[in-house]
Simulated scan of single mutants.
Amino acid sequence: MDAPLLRCEGVRRAAAGLRGIDLDLVRGEVLAVLAPGGAGKTALLRLVAGLDRPDAGRLLLAGRDLAPLSPPRRGLSLLDPLLPERRSVQEVAGAMLPAYDVPARDRPARIARALTALGLDGQEGKPVAQLGPAARCRLAFARALAPEQPVLLLDDPLVGLDPAPRRALGFELRRLFRRLDLSVLLATREGEEAMALADRVAVIEDGEIAQCAPPRLLYEEPATAFVAGLLGENNRLPGTVEWREETECAVRLDCGPVVEARVADAGGPGSRCIVAVRPERVAVAALPAEEMGEGALPAALRDTVFLGDHVRLLLELGEGGMLVSRRPPGSRNPVPGGPASVAWDPYAAFAYRALR
């Protein structure tokens, strides 16, 4: 990896629950900090921006300690979603430039570049009050982009938008970040958004970075049950470890069957754990388990939900173990009361320590 542009070294803030954040952002990278509400991701961005001070640790930009620098002197721009209703689009887009000591002669060009990048050129004279939610979001981005600082800080930037425009604008921003080679530190509570926008995703768990990796690796090999739960849907089956080797184990599920899984952070024999497997990795057959093949388990179909691009099957495993499978439309699925069985590759299942 390249030398970090922005570095957090052991950053602590007790009031926000941050117990020691170590994180690097390299130049031209989009790094998402993913955590549920109240877990400290907004507090971390405020510390980086200089709006609050850490109890301990260091924040460095290109090797320079940020502690003595005021927010406009740090080389960072923080997106603020709040917009003044009575100002024009052009006035709002340039509102941060005086604080960054951008010369008056350079401001019109920077405003124009920012508005063009966000598709707002031609609307310079329109009052903010006349903008819809998506256009307001674009304008907030343009205002943060206009100072042209080395790092752009974004805190839940698409919050408040309906799902369809939120997804569309997210993909547009992804292209914009890469086209302009921006260095972005993004805080979000949405796993799908983090994976769509970021080159790497860092998950905060218990005030520390539990895992930081590219989206695909994080999704396919989550280090903890908490990480797995933030990134997509998971079946979570409680049980007890029967035997364990270095990388694999067998677990007797509370609902009865014994299954094999990869060891994530599960303990040794006798310890409680959770076996997690993604719904799309659960194969389903309208056959008895002995006919489906090795590793298949008998199941009973309890419900089927058609959702357009896939069908969700709710199956009961053993005594009360509930399991969801995602299947393509048109696939041959079991029928209620008929034979059914399920199976998955043990390499796609992970055994995690049981959360208290």
Rank of each mutant, 00 (worst) to 15 (best):
G63Y: 00
L313A: 06
P150M: 06
L34K: 08
A67F: 10
M1N: 01
E319T: 14
R105C: 12
R46C: 01
L152Q: 04
T247N: 10
R86H: 15
A354S: 14
A213D: 13
P238Y: 07
P214W: 05
L31T: 03
R167G: 06
D55V: 03
L83Y: 07
L6G: 02
V102A: 11
V258P: 08
A202N: 08
V159C: 03
G122L: 11
I111T: 03
E193S: 12
L287M: 10
A354L: 15
A117P: 07
G337M: 05
P257E: 08
A266D: 09
A32C: 02
L23Q: 05
P257D: 06
D80E: 02
E91S: 05
R332L: 13
D162K: 08
V263D: 14
R74W: 04
A289G: 12
A289N: 12
L5T: 06
P71D: 07
P257H: 08
E290M: 10
G207S: 03
D55C: 04
A194S: 13
I204Q: 02
P222E: 02
A276W: 02
A15R: 12
L59D: 04
Q90S: 15
L61T: 03
R74I: 10
L51P: 03
R53Q: 04
R272L: 15
L118N: 04
T42C: 03
A354R: 15
G40D: 01
I209Q: 01
R244W: 11
A299W: 09
R244K: 13
R73P: 07
G270R: 13
